[in-house]
Amino acid sequence: MRTKQTLIRWTLVTVAALTMLVGCSDSADKTSGSDDAARATPRSELKGTVVVSAATSLTEVFTEIADQFTAANPDVDVEFNFDSSSTLATQIIEGAPADVYASADEANMTKLTDAGVIAGKPAIFAENELVIVTKPGNPSGIDNLSDLATAGVISLCGEEVPCGRYAAQILEKAGVAISEANVTRGQNVGATLAAVTEGDAAAAIVYVTDARSAGDQVEAVPVPAEVNVTATYPIGVLESSEASDVAEAFMAHVLSDEGQAVLSRYGFLLPR
């Protein structure tokens, strides 16, 4: 019977430890910019919390834009849910609570407008391009897209994830076929990039902005303009939002000169 006691004791220890782990981790990205509070003139009337579901490639730039937004609207909280646009679209269609959706492609936004969950018309707020990234110093000697076919394991986004779809379009235009046996699929662009920065993938195709924020962890090899594609980023407010005034104000801020300036600083192209 001591067997069972030991097992039970260890189960309890495990559960206790897990509870502590869960308790310590902060599940949501909260942004509460106070440092820029001086600029918050005039004091806004907006109140409430909005959940912004945004593409992984927007993680850094949206965090900064939200800091601006909450500095101008001190009674507002912005919470983020960053993942691939396709994962977020699936979550929203399944009823996950969100107020704003920002996608890295129009296909996933169309999925939501077709499902009737977007209020009004989405607006394009940014554009992006794609680039090959390799390990620092480019040890596999990757100079162009066709080198990807023979360079070892290449990290691409999942086929429904926008960056995966864009990569497929680029490879098709360039007439390069990479065997699926040499492709590891990331569940979002962050994971796809991490396979190069942390893991053993020889190269990845990611957004120019990701390559930029990865700094010297990667070396960027440009994709020729004639085969590159333009990623378009639409943003929209959800029909189900209970703080739609705040959600619309956030969307307006992203589209404002101030928001666009931040996007441009992070390397995003502004919609023409």
Binding site: T87, G158, E159, V183, R185, A195
Partner: peptide
């Protein structure tokens, strides 16, 4: 650790996660 490569490292749970979107 092992990545997500069809036929080589894509086990059932990984396939479930990937298929959820497609």
């Amino acid at each position: 650790f092992a990545g997500n490569i069809a036929g080589r490292t894509r086990t059932l749970p990984l396939a479930v996660y990937l298929a959820l979107e497609t």
